[in-house]
Design a protein around this nucleic acid. Structure first.
Lengths: 216, 216
DNA sequence: ATCTGTGAACGCATTCACAGCT
DNA sequence: AGCTGTGAATGCGTTCACAGAT
């Protein structure tokens, strides 16, 4: 019904997921031109993959030459909507939450952590870099007033689902969940990404033991 | 050349990656029998997917009935080689490293963090739960003596590659990398898994803005 | 001569649909 | 009757191979 536009072919989710890796590589390269081969190598993908991914969004390169680094960087930022800036709230000022707030990377400066909240009154008011931990009670207000589109959940598993629901209710469009719980959301336009550290480690255990396996 | 065994059909990597999610669900379920449908719902996958994944390793269920929870749990632990226990070293006692060391989850108890090391002399000797932060100098010795098969990298990007090489040299079989850098290893039997927080957030930014997209 | 952009071929994973047990 | 186990069909993403541009 609300199909985007007729000229647009379907873009694989996997392609989108690789764009940030290209973006980072482009920030670290020390030249003003780059080929799909070099870019791929820096990001860990094949040159065909790079070209195909970029071609979904337009013809950014010059045949026989390659891509202009600054121009491509801006294109990818635009594609990912990073040029408008993305504001996130971290829910849970524990160790992981704190680690995230302190995290900095040049290629990631477009994603701003605009607030940190916690239920525990004893940590509310604590200074964390530029931010001060705020009360969980004010979550909805914070999200609305500061134009926050993304929530990052770093609370214990039991509390995760409730936090998720409040974030969605507050109007957040995307959620990054570090709690070891499978979250579901009724609204299909809200995107959830799980990052599950123990699950990753357990899968690794298998691959580590099978000598035949080749790491990606 | 060293093909495992003739009766074994190829197992998709994606299937392996789902097993830990099933395992967690099995630890949290409050019954002694479960159907593929219920298990799938708890883990966030379809019932066919559950059955197919499990069937790669054997016929663990009973037709018309379902799966025995305890039995299936043990089977998955065996498949992932978690029953033998997996020992990991965390390199980098910063905020993220600390968060990981303190992390606990019942379904993940088979993965033990056996040591934490750091280059900074001022944090060496610091107590972290059961562990004491040790000197980076002793890395090789620690890996060898404590039978450690997995390394977790939580150091800054610039230091990550060197740490990676030392871990591989020390004999680690698997590496979980949180540093924002693309690591590569010559030895194809060593598995590397990247978890890149800023890359994930940037990809989310895209999905959050496109209302058509459906989260997985 | 070189490197991009892209249809076509291929391979892999998910979903379907149903036969086979209990 | 109910739920597993599994070939077959489908769908999706990657790789191939080359035409097209500079």
């Amino acid at each position: 019904m609300s199909k985007d536009n007729g000229t647009m072919r379907r873009i694989p989710e996997t392609s989108i997921r690789r764009l940030p890796a290209y973006l980072r590589a482009l920030f670290r390269v020390g030249a003003d031109r780059i080929t799909s081969d070099t870019l791929g190598q820096a990001a860990g993908y094949s040159s065909e993959q790079v070209r195909k991914d970029l071609a979904y969004f337009g013809a950014f390169g010059t045949r026989g030459v390659g891509y202009d680094v600054v121009m491509l960087r801006d294109e990818i930022r635009r594609i990912l909507r990073l040029d408008q800036g993305v504001r996130a709230v971290v829910v849970g000022a524990g160790r992981l939450g704190t680690a995230l707030v302190r995290y900095t990377d040049e290629s990631a400066r477009d994603v701003t952590i605009a607030a940190v909240v916690d239920v525990n009154p004893s940590v509310v008011g604590t200074r964390m870099g530029q931010l001060t931990v705020e009360a969980m009670d004010h979550l909805e207000q914070i999200v609305a007033e500061r134009n926050i589109g993304m929530g990052v959940i770093t609370v214990p598993a039991q509390a995760a689902m409730a936090v998720c629901e409040r974030l969605v209710g507050a109007g957040v469009r995307a959620i990054l969940n570090f709690a070891p719980a499978t979250l579901t959301v009724a609204d299909p336009t809200v995107v959830i990404q799980q990052i599950d550290l123990t699950l990753e480690m357990q899968a690794l255990a298998y691959f580590a033991h099978s000598a035949e396996r080749v790491g990606q």
